[in-house]
Amino acid sequence: MRSDRAFRSSSEGVAVPSILAVESISKNYGSAPVLDGLKFEQRPGEFLSIVGPSGCGKSTLLRCIASLMQPNSGSVRHKGNTFAEPPSWLSIVFQDYSRALFPWLTVRQNVAFGLHHIGSRERDERVQAAVQAVNLTHAIDLYPWQLSGGMQQRCSLARSIVVRPELLLLDEPFASVDAQTRIDLQDLVIDLSRRMNLSTLLVTHDVEEAVYMSDRIVVLSTRPARVVEEITVDLPYPRDQLATKETPDFLRLRHQVYTLIRAQAKSNNN
């Protein structure tokens, strides 16, 4: 069912309600504007990436989307409805994996954290399945400090997917792991999001990562952040670290996005 991605139908003229609509949101810290009328939509099942120059307010945007923070103006809608508290259909993997896991809980307990309202039997099964999905079964009873950075981030990932969200937010999830681990995690996330039919919103400053993983990319300006351009990535699935990245399409897209980002950085310097 997944082979024909749901959002494709919208381009054929059939109206599909967006899973997420960011409607002209602005956010100031004191008198300093951070987000300036941002506007974009995400279709169900879509893998959407947000890229922008460092420090442009990407994390603030994510916190506004998750309702961890309220924008000064504009709204965020899910299937047409607004919401005030972090909703149950949404889950986040935070950037700083070493801080985002509970140091006093084992992998198993960390992953089970969001399942407090569910019976213990079903909880155990779901935790097992999620841990297996991220290949951490061998480390299920270890504490976070006993895990490598990549394993910690996979644990965060398991904790986010175990609650079966419709939308998964990823805040620069691979920013502080080594190159090989980053590649493995990228493929793991693509695989999970396709298997579970997740809508995924990835915030990153890595252009190559955004092109490799996404169906569509939203490019932001420097602070205060505005949408500069939206770019559709029509690279075929399954994606492969070597084959995909050697295709002319990939190179063209990477060139296009990178040029936009560099123009932003330059305009900021001048």
Binding site: L90, F102, V163
Partner: peptide, 29 residues
């Protein structure tokens, strides 16, 4: 207590008493 941990608790829908007992108390111990 790290703000990120409290964010995780909020995203997972914990009420304020739950946040105190499951996040703040263990972190402060």
């Amino acid at each position: 207590v790290d703000q990120v941990l409290i964010d995780v608790a909020r995203v997972n829908g914990l009420t304020i008493p739950q946040r105190i007992f499951r996040v703040i108390l263990p972190a402060v111990l």
